[in-house]
């Protein structure tokens, strides 16, 4: 039977799932709260935080249950493969989410701005609607939305951040090697280094945002440049934060003696996710900052 005790000939199928409905309630509270907040209601923000709290509890509970079952030995190789496929396809969905925003950036730069500047068959827009608008990048559009602004130079903090993330990709791999060789102390140290680099990246990024808002005049309202810049780097920053939290959890679990040199899918999933945010950053560095 699938649900007899550890039995590696059968695929483990749990028979009750309490957490999903908790998750649904949490997510609903979160978004209903957020929607009310956007509509200007005061209680919205509290409801949103309550929703976030419920989702966090759900994640702890759900992952805790899975970890417990894994430690008990309920999962065979086939279950492990299902988890791996789940993570890979989840990351692919994330890639496509970022693709939408990269697509908006490319479309705006390659087509919209030149057209507004009078190129191609849409020349009348330029002649009648936005007379004399010159197509340059970066731009906040013909109406100069958000006022004058300067961009963040690429070969300054963003370059440092690139090096930080690349290094963190290296340290997480070192941690993986240490885990595979059962060197627990090195595992924790390399993970700690990765976590530190992740949070340091976020620290610098927040500093950059403050700099952009306070000194450069670059805001989310700075036309299409501000929109694409902050939405791309902002969603990336959210993913880095999430990844750094995941790494922290993995680090504490390693300190508690979780993961074996053979069986450590949780570690690998987080490492994959970390490499994914790393690769997205390389795209950002190239297309948002350098070019």
């Amino acid at each position: 039977m699938a649900h007899a005790k550890p039995d590696h000939n059968h695929y483990y199928v749990p028979h009750h799932a309490h957490w999903p409905i908790v998750g649904s309630i949490g997510v609903t509270a979160l978004v209903v709260g957020a929607a009310n907040m956007m509509n200007g209601s005061d209680f919205g923000v509290y409801l949103m935080y309550a929703g976030i709290a419920i989702v966090v509890v759900m994640l702890f509970g759900w992952f805790g249950e899975v970890i417990h079952e894994s430690v008990q030995g309920f999962y065979n190789r086939q279950v492990d493969t299902s988890f791996r496929m789940g993570m890979i396809w989840f990351i692919f969905s994330e890639v496509m989410f970022f693709a939408a925003f990269f697509g908006a950036l490319f479309y705006a730069r390659a087509l919209v701005v030149p057209w507004l500047g009078g190129e191609g068959s849409g020349a009348m827009t330029n002649a009648v609607l936005w007379q004399g608008f010159e197509a340059v990048w970066p731009t906040n559009g013909p109406a100069n939305l958000g006022g004058e602004f300067q961009t963040v130079p690429a070969f300054d903090v963003p370059l440092v951040n690139t090096l930080i993330l690349l290094t963190s990709g290296l340290t997480v791999t070192m941690a993986h090697w240490a885990l595979k060789k059962a060197q627990r102390k090195a595992l924790v140290l390399w993970l700690a280094a990765t976590v530190a680099l992740g949070f340091y990246f976020m620290y610098l990024q927040i500093g950059e945002y403050a700099h952009a808002y306070n000194e450069l005049g670059l805001t989310l309202g700075s036309g299409i440049y501000g929109s694409t810049f902050f939405m791309l780097t902002g969603f990336h920053g959210m993913h880095v934060t999430l990844g750094a939290i995941m790494l922290t959890v993995i680090m504490f679990r390693s300190m508690k003696g979780h993961f074996s040199d053979e069986n450590h899918f949780g570690f690998e999933a987080v490492a994959w996710y970390w490499h994914f945010v790393d690769v997205v950053w390389l795209g950002l560095f190239l297309f948002v900052y350098v070019l």
Binding site: A104, Y107, A108, L111, W130, T139, N140, G141, L145, T219
Partner: peptide, 19 residues
């Protein structure tokens, strides 16, 4: 305050249709 689909800010409503 973003202007993805607002031509005044250098965006384009048609871009929404493409995405």
């Amino acid at each position: 305050d973003t202007s993805f689909f607002n031509a005044a800010g250098g965006g384009d409503p048609v871009m929404f249709q493409h995405i």
